[in-house]
Design a protein around this nucleic acid. Structure first.
Lengths: 343, 343
DNA sequence: CCATATGCTTCCAACGTTGTAATCTTCAGC
DNA sequence: GCTGAAGATTACAACGTTGGAAGCATATGG
């Protein structure tokens, strides 16, 4: 059986409560007593039982992070940022993968595991605006992502429309005019895909260009393979384009590979920009221009907000919304103006 | 205040213990009673308090996965595989990042958090064979990786030497003879780097070739940027080589990029093979040959072994060792024999 | 119809910790 | 040297659950 406070108390010749007081840095402890207790703890190798502490105090110092898929580089990097931010504040993180399925997301959100954590960071993918009511759970929560807005909880997100508009303008400024919106979900209004498509439209509009529906390419799942597959179809269809605004880096990289196989030069024939600034974009050939969505800021803000809710420090505050700053990062894939003969 | 068993018991007009029995599927419960209890649970939205259960039963159904760095694609994919395997068996996973630092690894391993989990999967990076004694903790543990062998715990690993030998032979069979061992740690005997270097040597030896020390390239940290940096130095030094056995995919991809920038064609001028089979290798240009280390098998075996230890099913069994199967995956980066003029 | 076995349910205590309130100690101030 | 306040420590109960054993019903066999 493991060492408990009782054993420490006995060894230090004090009451159990005094041991507890020492551990929790309560005021009014004689220096000599503290010494004695710490010594006993050291000698016996005592470690507090966190289940007991959790039961008694209602705090576990564990938060949960619900994401669609850790294999997705964006979420892996987000998880890393969240864990680092949490660790700084003495919290540990349970990661739950939802696979982006609505049913599974709700199951996790309403499952018993929620009661063992102090709070949840929830990156929705399967849920939508119509589910806003369903995410009102007793556990403190901060919502991430762009599936639900103005819900009952704090919300941290990126500036999708503005960032997408800026990415599109980045290509327009380089003389590209026939731009694919690559990764659209046509039925979507909000969600990353919907918002980024809106930003794309605004940029075109500001530039006095018409929005052409055939240039919006549906890519349902945003993995590399899906981007490659979608680009293959585009090339087969003979669609004419000279720039690609890809709605995330992975599909951009997949598409880039397919274009290169087909003999298209990047950026000479086609300029392409992605979204997310995943590490890989710095090492692809050519390096991929992209949008840094402010991942670090998102993680840190989300953790800070969550802890305020947990502490009760933000008790009276109504649901907050925070949009992190973004930055267009120009790399080789958008470095050059198009060849003059391709007008 | 949240709903407790007491409330459910009251609503169903049974004792608290009967509610507990229903929840835990104890035998000997009348069907009618079970119905009544389940109905009350449903109606009240009861969810068990896992801290209390953990305290009373000593089980939390949480396991901890300690890895160096989630941003590393290999570990992200390993974490995913572990979480999936754990989830199948009703366990949830806490991920702790050690950064590969020895002190931090020990801190985590001996920290109080270990007492809140049922078991640990520990992927060491900072520790070495000389620390074998330090990992003998009271919490059930399964060791992953290649830093410590024949320690006090179960151990799941890949066949490093054999796999590296096979990867090297893969290049030799394609007529390459001046092979870099890319990613060596010269001071290391075991550890991934040490073992893979040994496999490389064996393959050379079997082929009747001499091991040449200048072809073993040190790359201390195995990230893309480090691989790129190391390859830059190799090219500057003017070293002559026609093949690269890279000790993981990330440094292979970084090196590949640098070689291409320098005008080297892959695979015509230099053939290259990596290690780990991360998703990205399927989409790089050219696609990267690599070794699948049996990640899935590793994750599933490790979780299974850990649960046996937790259940006590393997109580009497001495520390086990398991090496997963590997597979050389041939892709474009090793597709072609060298140009004939380069002999 | 009773004795006995078996199925089902309940009572009690305990897991290890911390909040509250009470008690004991120390020391300043007069 | 006494009073009172502040400092330091302790007793007790409770958090919500489950293991063990006892108790009560119901069925089985004679």
């Amino acid at each position: 059986m493991a060492i408990t406070m009782r054993d420490v108390a006995q060894a230090a010749d004090v009451s159990i409560k005094t041991v507890s007081n020492v551990i929790n840095d309560h005021p009014n402890i004689k220096a000599e007593t503290r010494e004695r207790v710490l010594l006993a703890i050291e000698k016996l190798g005592y470690q507090p039982n966190l289940s007991a502490r959790g039961l008694r105090s209602g705090r576990t110092d564990v938060i949960s992070l619900i994401i669609p898929d850790l294999k997705n580089a964006y979420f892996a990097e987000l998880a890393d940022a969240v864990m680092t931010a949490a660790s700084k504040r003495g919290k540990v993180v349970i990661i739950e993968q939802s696979g982006g399925a609505r049913a599974r997301e709700l199951e996790i959100l309403h499952g018993p595991r929620m009661r063992m954590v102090d709070g949840v960071l929830y990156s929705a993918l399967g849920l939508g605006q119509e589910d806003a009511g369903l995410i009102d759970i007793p556990t403190p929560m901060v919502l991430l992502g762009e599936r639900i807005f103005h819900g009952p909880t704090d919300h941290v997100t990126m500036q999708n429309i503005e960032a997408s508009q800026a990415a599109t303008e980045h290509l327009l400024q380089r003389g590209r005019t026939r731009l694919l919106a690559f990764g659209a979900h046509r039925n979507e209004v909000i969600g990353s895909a919907g918002l980024r498509l809106e930003g794309y439209r605004r940029a075109l509009q500001n530039a006095g260009l018409d929005y052409r529906d055939e240039l919006a390419i549906d890519v349902q799942s945003w993995h590399r393979a899906d981007g490659a597959q979608a680009m293959r179809q585009v090339l087969e269809s003979g669609l004419d384009f000279d720039g690609v605004v890809a709605f995330n880096d992975s599909i951009a990289l997949g598409a880039m590979r397919v274009m290169q196989d087909a003999g298209l030069r990047i950026p000479e024939d086609v300029a392409i920009i992605g979204f997310d600034d995943i590490d890989e974009t710095r090492y692809s050939l050519p390096t991929l221009s992209t949008v840094d969505p402010g991942r670090q800021e998102i993680a840190e803000t989300a953790v800070a907000m969550l802890l305020e809710r947990i502490d009760g420090a933000a008790e009276a505050t109504p649901a907050r919304e925070f949009a992190a700053g973004f930055k267009v990062i120009s790399r080789e894939s958008t470095a050059i103006r198009p060849a003059q003969d391709s007008a």
